[in-house]
Computed example of a mutant assay.
Amino acid sequence: MSVTTLPLPLLKQRELQEYFGVSDWTVNGWIRKGCPVQYLPNGHRRFDLADVRTWMATQAPAGREQRRRQSEHALAQRSA
């Protein structure tokens, strides 16, 4: 029997969700947007926390701008 070692820290999706306090829908959206994910031979997904943090740092400016526009739009809707 051979054991394949994986680089640490690899997290299961549930662990990633708990770490960031988000839902499975959010993580699946991140994956569609390019969040780094590693697929195991059995099809399960694992996430390198350092890689995810780096990816999120590149996404943050765009995400902040999008949230700002959404907030402005919501405020304009309320006052209309």
Rank of each mutant, 00 (worst) to 15 (best):
Q66S: 11
S79I: 12
R78S: 09
R78D: 07
H73E: 15
L6C: 08
L8N: 09
V52F: 02
I31H: 03
A74V: 11
G63C: 08
P41K: 12
T58G: 12
N42T: 06
C35E: 03
E15K: 01
Y39F: 13
W55S: 03
T26I: 06
A76W: 02
Q66A: 13
G34F: 01
L6Q: 10
G29K: 00
E65V: 06
R32S: 14
Q59T: 04
M56I: 10
E65G: 00
S23Q: 01
A60T: 15
V22A: 04
T26H: 00
E65W: 04
R45F: 00
Q70Y: 05
R53Q: 15
G63S: 12
P7I: 13
Q59K: 05
R64M: 09
G34I: 07
G21Q: 05
R53C: 15
R46L: 08
T4A: 11
E18G: 00
C35K: 01
Q66T: 12
T54I: 11
R68K: 07
Q38E: 15
P41A: 10
K12M: 07
L6Y: 10
Q59R: 03
H73L: 14
P41W: 08
Q59E: 09
P9M: 03
R14M: 02
Q70W: 02
M56E: 10
N42E: 07
M56A: 13
K12R: 10
A57W: 06
R53E: 15
C35P: 02
V37Y: 03
A80P: 05
G21R: 05
Y39Q: 15
